[in-house]
């Protein structure tokens, strides 16, 4: 979908700037996640600590974008697609901020205790990490392109992430049953896997906001078939 100029160029500019800031925030969150995962898998405690330290940057951007949105609502009274864009932004940045928090958690664990991870667990986690990183990248891509079909495809990949989380969870339970001395580290790994799984859920939310933005329908708590029908039945509108 293409969003083109308003009669008021200043208004178009304000919306564009805010959208760009969301993408910047997305880029920063993506970087935080990659670094957190790298720190975890490569047992780089210094990098993990750095991720935890840098979370404030994500929070700062969230506050700034929220302020921009409030300003646009107050001054421009956006309607229709502009209103949906502002709502989608306000909601998406909350999810992005939470993804940042999850990355911070992983970073903190990597800084404190990742040296106890054994090779099998690293392998299992690596799969999950790769999937989540790709999902976040694709989510941001769908948001940048304002592409609801892409968003739908991305949201569907969440199921695979949930399954991978369950597999790791089962593996860890076995490990804990085998030897209670594993419990402490296993639980930490569960928290990390859980954080990754939650990131998948936040990506899903952002994808839902993209579909709302493009198709004008709130598809939260709606079945997959219904969502597909909504996307297929809404004409793609080009704003000229």
């Amino acid at each position: 979908m293409e969003i083109t100029q308003h009669t008021s160029h200043a208004y178009s500019h304000e919306l564009e700037v805010t959208r760009t800031h969301v993408l910047q925030m997305g880029g920063l969150v993506e970087e935080q996640l990659s670094n957190a995962v790298k720190a975890l898998l490569e047992k780089d405690s210094e990098l993990g600590a750095e991720v935890a330290r840098n979370d404030y940057k994500v929070n700062k951007l969230e506050v700034a974008i929220d302020e921009e949105c409030a300003r646009i609502i107050a001054r421009r009274q956006p309607a229709a697609i502009d209103l949906r864009l502002i709502l989608a932004i306000i909601k998406s940045i909350t999810d992005l901020e939470r993804i940042g928090d999850e990355a911070e958690k992983i970073g903190r664990y990597a800084a404190e205790a990742s040296e106890h991870l054994d090779a099998n667990l690293i392998l299992a986690l690596r799969h999950l990490c790769d999937h989540v990183i790709i999902m976040l990248r694709d989510t941001l891509d769908a948001f940048a392109r304002i592409d609801s079909e892409r968003a739908m495809q991305v949201a569907e990949t969440d199921l695979a992430i949930d399954r991978e989380f369950e597999a790791i969870y089962r593996q860890l339970i076995t490990l804990m049953m085998e030897d209670p001395r594993n419990i402490k580290h296993s639980l930490n790994v569960v928290w990390c896997a859980r954080a990754l799984e939650r990131i998948g859920d936040h990506c899903c939310n952002i994808c839902e906001y993209v579909i709302y933005l493009v198709n004008g329908k709130d598809i939260r708590h709606t079945s997959k078939e219904e969502i597909k029908a909504i996307i297929a039945n809404t004409p793609m509108r080009k704003l000229t």
């Binding site: 308003h6 208004y11 229709a80 697609i81 329908k217 509108r237 704003l239």
Partner: peptide, 20 residues
Amino acid sequence: TVFTNPSHQLTENYITGRFG
């Protein structure tokens, strides 16, 4: 509906100020 999700492109353009 008109102010959140209008059906016609022209309505959308008008109420969002993309007209003329």
